[in-house]
């Protein structure tokens, strides 16, 4: 994966501050850390996903058998993956996660876009305060904010009680432990991640384009549709990826707010690991999830790199 970009004249100019050894010294600390604690673990997960579970410590068979001599015998097995295919539960959870993450991303976009637009077009003095208000909930405990929704959505919760006392409904609406509560939880938790990149994009948009369109007789909604919306496409992609990718693997929200019909892959992985203690199957679930997420992650990184270049 390591691409070696040739040293260009420009880079050599930029390195005036730190010599070549100095530069590697600065980079090496975070580089080695990430190689060791971020990249290496994925190789190990991949490895263990091909082994089989045993009752031992650690509870999986070694993939390489070194007892035969210098060249190890590979004793890999596809049983972990076979297990995923044999039980319908995994396919259901997998597809459920994709569906829930997709719908949540769309909902975040529908709520987040007008909010980001509103902040970007607000008077400059008020803009930072509004942005602060978007970020602030993100700084308080995620777990406790998800927990707060239980008190609101359950049968004798705040929302049902309010609706009943207003006489709008007689029976409490089923809003907990179903798809509704999971969507509310995900949209609520990930909305700031949608708003921030959209705002960053909309705020730096050249407004003279809109003025020019208006001068030429273009109506505001048409200018929005043909100028603002296409120009904000990178922001839409970044925000959507920031919501979609973690939402696919979400565990806390389906665990606290979900029910039997909202099984998600993150919760399956958790159960395989903590309840069934089947590390190879848990690893196979992780690899299956990664395969799904590789494309979105690459798109996200491509966008990030382009933003950084600007």
């Amino acid at each position: 994966m390591a691409s070696s970009t040739p040293e260009t004249g420009k880079a050599a100019g930029q390195s005036r501050r730190f010599g070549i050894p100095g530069r590697y010294l600065v980079i090496s600390a975070p580089y080695v850390w990430l190689l060791l604690f971020f990249l290496a673990p994925f190789a190990i997960v991949f490895n263990i996903s091909f082994s089989s579970a045993i009752i031992a410590q650690p509870p999986y068979t070694a993939l390489f058998d070194w007892s035969t001599g210098l060249i190890p015998q590979i004793r890999g097995t596809l049983s972990g993956y076979g297990f995923l295919l044999s039980d319908e539960l995994y396919a259901v959870a997998y597809l459920n996660s994709i569906k829930i993450a997709l719908v949540s991303t769309m909902l975040c976009l529908m709520i987040g876009y007008p909010m980001a637009y509103g902040i970007a077009r607000a008077p400059a003095a008020r803009r930072n305060t509004l942005l602060m208000l978007v970020i602030l909930p993100f700084w308080t405990s995620f777990l406790i904010r998800v927990y707060a929704w239980i008190g609101i959505l359950k049968n004798n919760g705040v929302l049902n009680n309010a609706l009943i006392s207003l006489g709008l409904i007689d029976e409490p609406l089923p809003m907990m432990h179903n798809a509704f509560s999971v969507y509310v939880g995900i949209v609520y938790s990930y909305l700031p991640f949608m708003i921030l990149p959209l705002y960053a994009n909309l705020a730096k948009m050249d407004e003279s384009l809109l003025e020019a369109a208006a001068d030429l007789g273009c109506r505001p909604w048409k200018a929005f549709l043909f100028i603002t919306l296409p120009l904000s496409f990178p922001g839409i992609i970044a925000g959507s990826m920031l919501v979609f990718i973690p939402a696919v693997g979400e565990f806390v929200i389906p665990a606290l707010l979900g029910g039997p019909d909202t099984l998600m892959i993150g919760k399956v992985l958790w159960n395989e690991f903590f309840h069934n203690r089947d590390w190879p199957v848990a690893s196979a679930v992780a690899i299956a999830m990664l395969v799904l997420l590789v494309a979105p992650i690459v798109i996200f990184q491509h966008y990030q790199a382009r933003e950084d270049d600007n």
């Binding site: 390591a2 970009t5 040293e7 880079a11 930029q14 390195s15 530069r23 580089y31 990184q301």
Partner: peptide
Amino acid sequence: RFGAFKGRTLFT
């Protein structure tokens, strides 16, 4: 600040 260096893509 360092521009292009060996392994930059992986690092990013």
